[in-house]
Every structure is written in C-alpha cells, then in structure tokens.
C-alpha cells in the first residue's frame, strides 16, 4: 500500500470542495448571488449572511460560490482548449521534428511574449471584454506551456526501444502517437492540467479585477475585489473573502498537481 502524499490529499480535498461548491452554486446558494438588498449594504460577516454583504447588499458567501463557477469554468475551458492545441503541436513536433519542430518553436516564442493580460488588452480591443475574451487570452497562454511539456515527454517515449520496434513493424507516426505516446504522457499532462488550471484561475481573477473579464452581474472573484477596493476603508471584510477564495483554489490545484506528480514519479519527489 502506497502512502498517499500529504499534498495529494490536501490538494484533492481543496479541489474537491472548489469543484463541489462551484457545481452546487448552479442549483443552490444561501441567497440569490445577484439579488440586491440595500438594507444589508456593507454589513459585516454574521450581520448579513456568513461573510457579510457588499456595497449593494448582495450576499458575499453566495457570490463566492457562484464566482467559483465562473472562475473554474473559464480556467478549465481555457486550459482544455489551450492544452489540447498545445499538446497537439507538441506531440506532432516530437514525431515530425525538422521544419515543423522549428516553426512550432517559433510560434511558441511569439505566444510566450503574450501573457494573458496583454492578450486580453489586445483582444479586448477586438472583441470587447467578456468571458470569451478571457478564455481566448488565457488559452493562448496555455499553448506554449503544453507544447513544451508534451514535446519533451513525447521525445523521451520516442527514444524507447519498443517504439523503435513499432516503427520497424511499419506503423505510421500518427498511429504510434495515438497508441503509445499519448497514453504514456497522459500522467504528465494531467499533472500540468491541474497546475495550469490554477494559473488560469489567477489569470481570470486578474482580468475580471481589471474589468476585462466576464460581464456583470455574473459574479466573479476578481470583480468582487475590484468593487471591494472602493470600500476598503469602510468594509475591509469585502477584501478578504474573494482573495482567500482565489488563493485557496490555486493552492489546492497546485498541491493536487504536485501530489499527482509525486505519486506518478516518486524519484522527482525530493527535487521538485
């Protein structure tokens, strides 16, 4: 029986709570997260709901739950889209090498120069702010990360003897990639998926903090912080809850990723 590493079960637990409360928010929240109740305006935790109420009396706890759905939805979608494209480029580069590899390296260097906020500023000019802009901006940033990881991992598998044997038996590159390469690098990709989703949540929070994320009134953690900034002197509790939610979500996903890596590759445990 392998012992489950601390970071895995802690990360797993936090991630489970994050996903659970995000999904739950679609069906139930203590209050309607977009319903104003001016009587509760800026009331502190306990006086109105578990975590107090915001500047127009919305229930903060409910907004945190619903904001989790927004954050997670955008981050996961962006990671899936960017990750798939990146992985596709990466495994193709590993299989083909040569010109394709060079070009994909260049594309990566270009994409690398565009962190999510920069892409969002550019895309914001084109599409205006919103969920789609966020997803594309964050997704674009995921591409080079997944390309690098999947290419490196795939190249390692390609150099194995049984792949050479498969090549000798006349199997094409695409078939080998699907049959042998992808299953063998899936663990690494899963680890990266967890970690990048965490980064995606951070990026989404940043975008909605700047007002470039999903449009109101849909609750989002970043926008809650932006609103809270105005009332930082009078209602400091509004600053704390969304920040803690973001930090916990990212921490949980990072720990989950690290834990999965330790589990799949114990050799790296000490050094990582």
């Amino acid at each position: 029986m392998k012992r489950i590493p601390l970071n895995l079960w802690l990360g797993g637990l936090i991630s489970f709570l994050l996903v659970g409360s995000a999904i739950l928010s679609r069906f139930w929240t203590p209050e309607d997260p977009i319903k104003m109740n001016i009587l509760n305006r800026l009331k502190g935790p306990g006086d109105a709901g578990l975590l107090g109420a915001d500047q127009i009396g919305r229930d903060v706890f409910s907004m945190i739950m619903a904001g989790g759905w927004t954050s997670l939805g955008i981050a996961v979608t962006a990671t899936i889209v960017g990750g798939s494209i990146g992985t596709l480029i990466g495994v193709t580069a590993a299989a083909k090498s040569g010109a394709f590899e060079k070009v994909s390296g260049w594309v990566n260097s270009v994409l690398f120069a565009f962190p999510p906020i920069l892409s969002a500023i550019l895309l914001g000019a084109l599409l205006g702010p919103g969920g789609l802009t966020s997803i594309i901006a964050i997704g674009v940033f995921m591409i080079p990360v997944f390309t690098r990881i999947s290419r490196g991992a795939a190249m390692q598998i390609w150099s194995r003897d049984y792949i050479k044997a498969a090549k000798m038996s006349g199997k094409g590159q695409a078939l080998i990639t699907v049959e042998h390469i992808l299953p063998n690098i899936s663990a690494q990709l899963l680890v990266q998926f967890a970690i990048q989703t965490g980064l995606g949540i951070l990026a989404e929070a940043g975008l909605s903090f700047l007002g470039m994320g999903i449009a109101p009134p849909t609750p989002s953690w970043g926008r809650m912080l932006a609103d809270a900034q105005t009332y930082i002197g009078t209602a400091p509790h509004l600053v704390l809850a969304p920040g803690i939610a973001i930090a916990l979500a990212v921490l949980g996903l990072n720990l989950l990723g690290d834990g999965l890596r330790d589990l799949s590759d114990p050799r790296r445990k000490q050094a990582s």
Partner: peptide, 22 residues
C-alpha cells in the same frame, strides 16, 4: 512558496494597503 504562488499579487496589494497604509 506554495502560498506565494497561489496568492494573486493585486490582492497582496490590497492587503498591504489595508494594513500598512490605512
């Protein structure tokens, strides 16, 4: 390291304003 990576920098900024400035 784990916490520093997870915490958004703009939130750290807000906390610094809250505690050290205000």
């Amino acid at each position: 390291a784990q916490f520093g990576i997870a915490v958004p920098n703009f939130w750290i900024g807000l906390l610094l304003i809250l505690f050290l400035s205000l």
